[in-house]
């Protein structure tokens, strides 16, 4: 891809960077961070319209390493969803982008994760999934595969929590899985997710080079590179008019999003209809049974209202309402007091 020095709003890619990363050299999370930067740059997102949200953990620390000109909140372990929900209610014109980890989302934060999706808070929710706790030095997380080995923790005998399956069951309308080593797919998914009208979850297998990158790990670079099985080649097309390449019938599937952009899914070796909820769950289950590492847009359903819509919030964000709308009128107040005192 050719890289313009400035994007449509006159910003350079540097304007989307953050502080220098303090994660381990080669950490998958840094690859994801650079794709977040690239996606925001390519989408020409005004930085002040984005908020970067996170909880606690290596992944959550990375919120400091991108979008330095966007406000952000590095909050509590497993509680980013509630903080983001509150921010959305206060100002639904903001576009939250959250980074979380497998511990933050699938262990301590599983409840908040599911309730956020159930409420459909419109946001990009990236789970940087490495199956291991990094900051506390190498304990298993709830997404570790059965039989996985770790140097100190030994062998994991419990089944993993599948973040994507949980998301579909919770009512999430954009569920994707990707691999930090597949930069283009990660970037295209982030761009599509930013344009999705609702909560969008991307579960990115993001290897931990320090604690879980050995040969027998299902969350290692080697495993990902040798086993990744994309269900389609995904491209995000911001304006449909730009589309020029013609595909053979049945070879590509275009899905138009809320405000006009399109996700183009070019078929690879299997048929998968991402708008079919049962097919999406079946795909995850088949992949699990076959030990396959399936990536791509697994489920898409844009028909649910966002939380702000469900609650009937108007155009002006609540945080920006003028005092006269935040207070009762003198007349309404007086009428209520008259009723309470029996004078009305």
């Amino acid at each position: 891809m050719t890289q313009a020095t400035v994007n449509a709003i006159g910003l350079t890619k540097n304007d989307y960077r953050g502080a220098p990363s303090t994660l381990c050299a080669g950490c998958g999370h840094d690859s994801v961070a650079s794709q977040i930067i690239a996606a925001a740059f390519e989408l020409s997102l005004p930085p002040h319209t984005v908020i970067r949200m996170s909880g606690i953990g290596c992944s959550s620390k990375s919120a400091a390493y991108f979008l330095g000109r966007s406000h952000g909140f590095n909050s509590l372990h497993g509680r980013m969803p509630s903080v983001t929900t509150g921010a959305h209610l206060a100002n639904h014109t903001l576009r939250p982008l959250a980074v979380s980890g497998d511990g933050d989302t699938a262990s301590i934060g599983l409840g908040q994760f599911i309730h956020l999706l159930r409420r459909n808070v419109p946001m990009v929710y990236i789970v940087e999934n490495n199956g291991v706790y990094g900051l506390t030095k190498g304990q298993f997380s709830a997404t570790a595969d059965e039989g996985q080995e770790l140097k100190h923790a030994g062998v994991n005998h419990l089944p993993p929590i599948d973040v994507c399956a949980e998301a579909i069951l919770a009512g999430c309308g954009f569920v994707a899985r990707s691999f930090a080593g597949d930069a283009k797919q990660v970037r295209e998914l982030i761009k599509a997710a930013f344009n999705f009208h609702g909560a969008a979850v991307i579960d990115v297998i993001s290897p931990c080079v320090t604690f879980n990158n050995h040969d027998r790990s299902t969350k290692s670079y080697t495993y990902g590179k040798t086993h990744e099985s994309p269900i389609h080649d995904i491209s995000f097309i911001p304006h449909y008019e730009e589309v020029t390449i013609d595909y053979e019938p049945g070879e590509a599937r275009d899905v138009q999003l809320h405000d006009g952009p399109v996700i183009r899914l070019r078929k690879l070796h299997r048929d998968h209809d991402p708008t079919d909820r049962m097919a999406a769950l079946a795909l995850l289950e088949e992949a699990r049974a076959a030990n396959e590492f399936v990536t791509g847009l697994i489920y898409l359903n844009e028909h649910r209202p966002t939380l702000a819509e469900t609650l009937g919030i108007g155009q002006t964000p609540i945080a920006a309402l003028p005092e006269e709308r935040l207070r009762p009128s003198r007349e309404a107040f007086a009428a209520m007091m008259a009723e309470l005192t029996g004078a009305g």
Binding site: R79, T85, G86, L89, A90, L311, I313
Partner: peptide, 27 residues
């Protein structure tokens, strides 16, 4: 549109989390 969003949260942790997020964003 409503001038006050009211959410019954899944627990008190989330309730205060939502309040903190909203306060941070200016409500």
């Amino acid at each position: 549109g409503t001038t006050c969003a009211i959410v019954q949260a899944e627990d008190e942790i989330a309730a205060l989390g939502i309040v903190i997020g909203a306060g941070w964003a200016g409500a």
